[in-house]
Amino acid sequence: MLFSFLASPEHRLTTRYARLGSLLLTGLLSAATLQAAEAPANTSEMASLTPEKLMEAVKWRADGNSRQADITLELWQGQQLRDTRQVRYLEQDKGQSRDTLMYISEPKDVAGTSLLFQSDAEKSSDDDSIYLYLPALRKAKQLAARNKQGRFIGSEFIYADLEWLRPEDFSYQSKGKVMWHDRPVIELEATAKQDSVLEKTGYSRKVLWVDPQYQLIVATDFYDEQGRLLKRMEVEKVEQIQHIWTITQQRMDNLQSGQSTRMYVKNISYDVAVNDRLFNRQQLGKRW
């Protein structure tokens, strides 16, 4: 296994819980803020939370107000590297909403394609807006938000895996503490609450492993609509960047098709200066 945690396990997060934040990309730049009143002070407090609260804590983990990175996605078919994607990533939180912009520079035939993801924590995820700009058409098309089973730029991650964490979609049951690659983690079983969740995600059930120290989901098993194991996400590398524990390498294995995606995150910066005008459908396609 490729797990190598660069940061010291003894390290304590210095960033206090800010007002906003969360995961657009659960395992991508996983950092968020927790409402101060609800925020657990340390690992043991995290571990003692109810499953729902624990998920809320993960959602609201601190990660600054904006973030920027370069992402490489490797698409594998079994042991064979099939394709590579290069994505420039920019995200900003504004109040209860979050805007995410992605610019695809490789492969060449879709270079210039851009994605704008707009989400509001106070609204249903069905109300999210997803725009995809196609340079060949010179226009942006909106994607349906009620169904997020689409493959994120052809990878094994679907939009539902990468959306802002929605703990309310699932009911949780704690399976207690277990060891995961020599680290204590909390195992949670999550079951879809409604048909609409099934329609949106295609997942009937998930099993999650939450690292209370990192406040990160470090692994997830995804079960399909028939309850069969479909995919497995595993974090392979966590680094501390600007005092924020950040996942810099992870993989998603589709256990039914044999395909997998490895995601590498580089050049990460938090709290970067962002031009608000970029997060506009009309501006899509422009490289920043």
Partner: peptide, 19 residues
Amino acid sequence: ASNDLYAQYLFLYENSNGN
């Protein structure tokens, strides 16, 4: 026919839950 239009249609399809 135009440069990369088909590729981008397909890209859009894949990203829109097309399987």
